[in-house]
Design a protein around this nucleic acid. Sequence first.
DNA 1: GACTCCGATCTTTTT
DNA 2: GATCGGAGTC
Length: 751
Amino acid sequence: MQYLDGLNEPQREGVVNTEGPAMIIAGAGSGKTRVLTYRIAHLVNAHKVDPFNILALTFTNKAALEMRHRIENVIGAEARNLWMGTFHSVFARILRAEAGFLGYPANFTIYDTDDSKSLIKTIVKEQELDEKVYKANVVLNRISGAKNRMISWQAYINNPEYFAEDEANMKPKMGKLYRIYSERCKRAGAMDFDDLLFNTNILFKNHIDVLNKYQHRFNYVLVDEFQDTNISQYIITRKLAAVHQNICVVGDDAQSIYAFRGADIRNILNFEKDYSDIKIIKMEQNYRSTQNIVNVANSVIARNRAQIHKQVWTTNQSGELISLLKASSDHEEGRLVASSIFEEKMQNKIQNSDFAVLYRTNSQSRAIEEALRRVNIKYKIVGGLSFYQRREIKDLLAYMRFTINHNDEESFKRIVNLPKRGIGPGTINKILVAAEEHTISIWEVIENIHQFIHGKVSATLSGFVTLIKRFELEVNHKDAFDAATLIAKQSGILKELYEDKTIEGLSRYENVQELLNAVKEFVDNTDNKDVNLGAFLQEVSLLTGVDTDKSDDNNVVTLMTIHMAKGLEFKNIYIVGLEEDLFPSQMMLSSRADLEEERRLFYVAITRAKEKLTLSYALTRYRFGRLKNCEPSRFLDEIEPKYIQVDTKFSFSEPVIPNRTKSFINSVRRDVQKKSANTFKKTGDYTVSPGFEPSDTSALEIGMKVEHPKFGYGKVLDIDENGAGRKAKVKFDNFGEKTLLLSFAKLRIHE
DNA sequence: GACTCCGATCTTTTT
DNA sequence: GATCGGAGTC
C-alpha cells in the first residue's frame, strides 16, 4: 500500500478506518481530496470491495470527474464501476430506473432554473395574480425551500403556519402556486433540480423494497463537501447507509457557503449526535498556503460563532505579506490588478495559469476583463452564463427534449413557433388552458386540436405535430449525434441561423455547430454505455458553467466567483471588490442576517492562495448601471494590520486601514469625479452620424441641438448624471419636453 | 400574429 | 446592461 507513505497521522486514519461511521473534518488545504481518493482505493485494494458497491457523492461534476481520474490512477480501470457523481446526477439515474414507482415516465425531462421560472410565470399569469408580487424568483425560492426541507405541496397547504407566513408576506396564494407548479411538472413529465432529491426521498419512503435494494448495494457511502448538504440530501444518504453503517462524510464547516441553496450547516455540526460510535478525524495541517495566509484566514474565521473547533496550522514559510490595492473606481481596480499581475509575471517569472481573480458577483468580471485585455494578458472566465443557457442552444435542446418527451411544456413553448409558424401567444395560451382544464398533457391537446379549440388555428400546428412524430421515429434507431443533426436540420433552426448573416447570427450558428460537436464527442466517448439522444440530454441537463469550460489554451489567468473557486488553489490570488454591501453582500445581510456565511466565503477565497494574496477595493463602482460610492469592506478591518501591506506603487498613499475616515474617502471621491470629468469629456468636433443611431451617451451635452426621427429638432436641456448620463431631457420644437433613454433614443447631433 | 420602440425593472452565489 | 412586456403599427 505505497499510497499510505507520506500521509500524516490524521490523513492515514482517514484512509484506513473504513468501517463504521466516520466524519473527517478537513481544514482548508489539508489534503482532503487525497484522503478521499486513497480511502476509496484502499477499500478496493486492501478490502477487496467491488467498486460497484461504493457510492461517492460530490457537489460538482468537476469534483466527481477529478476524483474518478485520481482513483483510476491508483486502482486502474475498475474505477469506472464506482457509483460516483453529484447528488443530482446519481439520484437522477436512480429515479430513471425507478420512475414507474412514482408515476413518472423513465424519460422524464429535467427542468433547469429557467424552465422552472418560466413555468411559474405562466401559472401566475393564468391565475391572474400580480406578477410584481409573485415574482418568479421569489415563488421558486419558496417552493425550493419547501422541497429542500421535504415539505410536499400537500403538507404545505395543510400547515397553517406556512399560510400565516405567506399571508404576512402578502403572498397568500403561495400554497396554491406550489400545488399547481407540482402538478404541471408532473403532467409535463418533468422534474426540477429540487425534485431530483425530493422525489428520491419519496421513493425511498414509500417503496421500502426499492430502498432495500440500494441499501444493500451500497456497502460504503462517502460524501464530499458534507457542509453543503441540505436536509433532503442528508436524509437520503443516511437512509442509504442505514444497513451497513459505513458512512463517511468529509467536509469543513468553515467552508459552508451554500446556505442560500438550503445547505444546512447543522448537518455537520450535529452529525456526531446521529451516530453514537462515530469516528471523528480532524485534519488540521495546511499544506497549501504560507503562514501569513493561514494566519490571516484563521483570524478572519475566528470571528464566527457557529463552528467546530479546530486549529489550522502549517509548517510552510511565512511568505509575503497580504497586498492591498486601493482603487478610485472599478475600472481603476481592474487596471491595478492587471498591472500587478503583469509585474508579478515579469519579476517572478510566474505563469498566467498561476493567477486567479476572485469576485463576489459575476458582473464584476467586466472591468477586470477589459483591463487584462488592454495589457494583453490572456484570461478565461469560469462560470457565468453557461453555454447551455444560450438561446440558440436551449432552442435546439428543446426540440430534442420535446422529441423524447412530448409532454414537456417548457420545451413546447420554446419551439412551437420556432421557426415562425404563425402560432402566437394567443394560440399557445389556449392550448395551455385546454390542457389545464381537461387535466391532460399538451401533446394530447395538439394532437387533437380541433376537439379542444374551436375556431381558427393555424394549419401549421398539425405540421408541427407530424414533424415531432417523424423525429420520434428517427430517433429510435439513431445515435444521439445522428438524431441531433437531423433535428437541427429538419426543424429549420440551422437554416434560419445560417441565413442570419449578422455577427450575432454567425456566432449563434457556430454555437449550434459546437453543440453538435459536443453530441459527437458524447457518442464517441467509450465510457458512455448509452449513446442515444435521451442519454445525452440526461447528461447535459445537469451540466453547469464550469463543466463546459474547454478552452484549448491552458496558460491563462482564471476569473471566477468565489463560489466557483472552492476546491481549487492558485499561487497568486486576487480578491477584488472588498466593499461594504458588495462583499459582504448587502442582500445576504438584509435577507438572512447571515454575516457568518459571507465571512466563510471570504475565508474560502483567502485559503485558495498558496503564495501570495492580494486584496482590492474601489471607492466608486458601477452597479445596476449606476455609479455608486463605496466604502471598504468591514472584512478588511478583521485582518490584523501587521499582515497587510498597502501597495503604494499604484494605490492611493493615504492609510485607509485601520484609520480610515469619512473625510479621506470624500476627498478621494472629489478627485475621482474631477479626474473622470477630465478624462471622459469629449472636446472639439463631434462626429455627426449619417443616420439615426442610438445616441452615444458620452457625446451628448447640455445645450446641443439634436434631431429625433419622430419628434424632429430639439435642444438638450439636461442630462441625468446620477444615472451615469443615461437619460437626457430634450425640449423639442414641436413636441415639448421629453425625457429620453439614451441607450434607446435615436438622435442625430447638430454641431 | 409579427415587429418596433421604449419605459420599467432587476441583479448573489449554483446543482 | 440586459431583459421583459406594453403599446402601437403593419
